[in-house]
Design a protein around this nucleic acid. Structure first.
Lengths: 199, 199
DNA sequence: GAGTCTCCATACAGTCCTGTATGGTATGGC
DNA sequence: GCCATACCATACAGGACTGTATGGAGACTC
């Protein structure tokens, strides 16, 4: 076994490190020098994998574009879902940070406030998500304006909870689901479904 | 009239310039060099008025602390207000950017995501505002958990609207007030009040 | 085993930033 | 008219950052 297992970095390694900094400290702190220090190499490596810092940032944005809205839309556009099922699917999606990374969303929103190109990507994601939620309300019989408004209230409330980083325990959140459902829809969750929660 | 009207800068001038940059480009861009360039003086002036860049940032935070939550709490804690009046007062407060500067709020939230001391100030403001709203629900007869949750939904929805910078016309927003009221409270706004809107 | 390719290190140029030390200049007190 | 004071300019030291040019070591080719 040779000792010189030359373990070269990949472009993906740089992207992953960049994403970590983006999550915790914002896009301004995603700097070539700091990434190199963290990865224990010199910046020479970086400029072999990337043309410039800007190319790294572009790649970060592209990766988020591909990954982050699909899960949400997919969860609530299953055929045969009624409104209860759609909204519960959203609650479940937002419950666990593994499936839907709030911090990445927040970081992109911060970033978008300063860079118009990023802003466009974030806006598009919001539009797609809200439209998907809205569709559920419309199919459940709500009037167009009310359906759209209820979708916005639902989405913004959720964004608000993790923007404010209010930490509520998992069990407590599940306990509130019927209440949220009643606020968001004006209707009462069916008893069968309430009994089936917490499962 | 002497030509040498030496118009010296005040500490307030620096703070105002800093606030402008904070609003548009975030706290990282609040740099002594840029402020000096914008104010057409050298950094020598800054370091006479302030001990360091940090002292400027501290002063910015302190100013926000003093100013930004009072108006909201005052608007909804007038004696004799019922729930309708309180919520309408909030809607009106948020309608015009002059009285409640959303951008400054957003900028502080961004800043707080990176600096724990700022984070504490923002959290405290959120708690005070939500508690004030919650009080209105409780006095209107809602159960504790529901009152608190409805207050959060109301507040987060509003934060969401300007976090996402959704631009809705003034008239359109006013038109939606009865609908928002119904979603947030589960009750219908009195006809007398609806007729009195748009005034 | 000479040549080529991949991946990274090293060295240099240049920008932008903070903070400090010190000098200069108009202004008011006396 | 002298001096202190308020306010700002100038100059220097030093750090963090980007980007480029070039060298060098291991692996792979044929």
């Amino acid at each position: 076994m040779v000792q010189s297992e030359r373990n070269f970095l990949t472009r993906g390694d740089w992207l992953e490190a960049a994403k970590r900094i983006l999550l915790t400290e914002g896009i301004e702190q995603v700097k070539v020098q700091r990434l190199a220090a963290r990865l224990k190499v010199t910046r020479g490596s970086f400029y072999w994998h990337f043309k410039s810092r800007q190319e790294l940032l572009d790649a970060l944005l592209a990766a988020w574009r591909r990954s982050n809205t699909e899960a949400l839309v997919a969860a609530i556009t299953q055929p045969g879902q009624d409104l209860e099922e759609r909204i519960l699917a959203l609650f479940r999606l937002w419950l666990d940070e593994d499936v839907f990374d709030h911090r990445l969303d927040t970081a992109l929103r911060d970033w978008g406030r300063k860079k118009p190109a990023v802003r466009q990507a974030v806006d598009e994601a919001d539009r797609r998500r809200i439209a998907a939620i809205e569709q559920g309300f419309l199919e459940a019989g709500f009037e167009p304006l009310e359906g759209r408004t209820r979708a916005e209230v639902l989405y913004f409330t959720q964004v608000g909870y993790y923007t404010h980083e209010i930490r509520i325990g998992r069990a407590e959140r599940i306990r509130r689901w019927p209440l949220f459902y009643r606020i968001f829809t004006g209707r009462t969750m069916s008893k069968a479904r309430v009994a089936g929660l917490e499962g």
